[in-house]
Each structure stands twice: as C-alpha cells, then as structure tokens.
C-alpha cells in the first residue's frame, strides 16, 4: 500500500485522466437517478379510500350539492366529512346494486363505525385552518372565484369523479403528500396586498394551534 504512494500515479496522461473521471460521473448519474426517481417512490406509500365513494353519483345522480356534506356549522367550525350517521339518512338500506354500498352499510352503518376517510389536504394538529375565514365573500373582495374554483385552490376537484384519487402517504412523516405546506399558505398570508382586505396577516398564531 505504501508503495503506491511512493510512486506518483501516471496522472499526467490525458486518456487516463479522462478514464479517471468516469467513475465520478457514473456515481453522479447513479445518485441523480436514485435521488430524483427512486427516492420519491420509496418515500411515499399509496393508499386507497376505505370505501369507494363516487362523488359523481351523488352530485349528478342524487342531485346533491357540495355543501350537503361539506358545510360550515352554525358555530363557524367546518363539518369537513359526513358522519356515518348522516350517510345513513339515505343509506340505511341499499339504494342500488353496488356491492360496495352493501359493504358500506354492513360494515359501517349497521355497526355505527365512522369511516376513516383519507383527507388529501389533512393539516397537522398544529394547524388551525378556518374555512369560515377563507370564504368566497372574503376572497372575492379582489378575486372572482366561483366556489369550486376557490375550493380547488387547495383541494382536488373530485365532484365529477367516480373514483377517489390515490392517497400518497409520506412514510416518514405520515402526512399526505398533497398536504399544503406552510409556504403555500404564505403565498397569500405573506402577501401584504392581502392584509387590508382579508386581515390575513402572516403572524404565527393566525394559523397555528
């Protein structure tokens, strides 16, 4: 081993210098592939909703509106997702032929169990998000959002889908891949133009609990 050091490598010749650089670039490319392609695959696991729910059937077929289920309560808090009890208002007995509906009734309605829906934009516990404050009323002081457009700023528009999108869970953090991170909130909250009309300052406690 010591010998090698005593003989300076023939590092002056051009070909071997090029050959010397090759392993470096191989390593570089391997790392890039690993980092940009394999790593994201490894980081997230795919999950599906516990019950296949078709928004389309409910919207088009049953003529329901978004706010039939996703509504603001009287106290200003947001109902988010419907409870099994409210689903059971219609689905106490199967209304169609879909075996998934039958399974839902058997597993949830009959037992009173709540469905553990996967929420794509589920925020961490330390975040306080007010649906009341982010209303069409306040945003449309300047914007001209329709309700769907406004909701779609954050949520995937699933109103016309038959199948819910795949849910990607970060294996390390256990949060949804689609969860908004703080910088996305700050696109508005840190924008001074918003302060006057929406009172949406970027102070920590405006959004954290």
């Amino acid at each position: 081993m010591a010998d090698r050091h005593l003989h300076p490598a023939n590092g002056n010749s051009a070909p071997s210098q090029f050959g010397g650089a090759a392993p470096f670039f191989v390593g570089l490319v391997v790392a890039l592939i690993l980092g940009w392609w394999a790593f994201p695959q490894m980081l997230f696991s795919q999950k599906h909703q516990p019950v296949r729910f078709s928004h389309k059937v409910h919207m088009e077929g049953a003529g329901m509106e978004c706010k039939s289920c996703h509504f603001l309560r009287e106290d200003g808090s947001y109902a988010g997702l419907p409870t099994t009890e409210s689903c059971a208002e219609c689905h106490s007995e199967p209304m169609g032929e879909d075996p998934e509906e039958a399974r839902f009734i058997e597993e949830y309605v009959n037992t009173g169990k709540e469905v553990e829906w996967l929420v794509y934009q589920k925020q961490p516990d330390n975040v306080f998000f007010s649906h009341a404050a982010h209303s069409v009323d306040s945003c449309n002081n300047c914007h001209e959002f329709t309700e769907t457009e406004l909701c779609s700023q954050c949520h995937p528009n699933v109103a016309e889908t038959d199948e819910a999108p795949v849910y990607y869970e970060n294996k390390l953090t256990k949060y949804s891949k689609q969860t908004m991170k703080m910088w996305r909130c700050e696109r508005c909250h840190a924008n001074p133009e918003h302060f006057g009309t929406t009172r949406s300052s970027n102070a920590c406690y405006v959004c954290h609990k």
Binding site: D75, S130, A132
Partner: peptide
C-alpha cells in the same frame, strides 16, 4: 386560550 379567539372569530364570521 388562543384557540377560543379563533373560534370566536369564526363564529362571528358565520353570524
């Protein structure tokens, strides 16, 4: 109880 402040504001907005 800052969360109560947030709730009070939400309630005000709702009303």
């Amino acid at each position: 109880c800052h969360h109560r402040f947030m709730k009070a504001k939400d309630k005000a907005i709702a009303e």
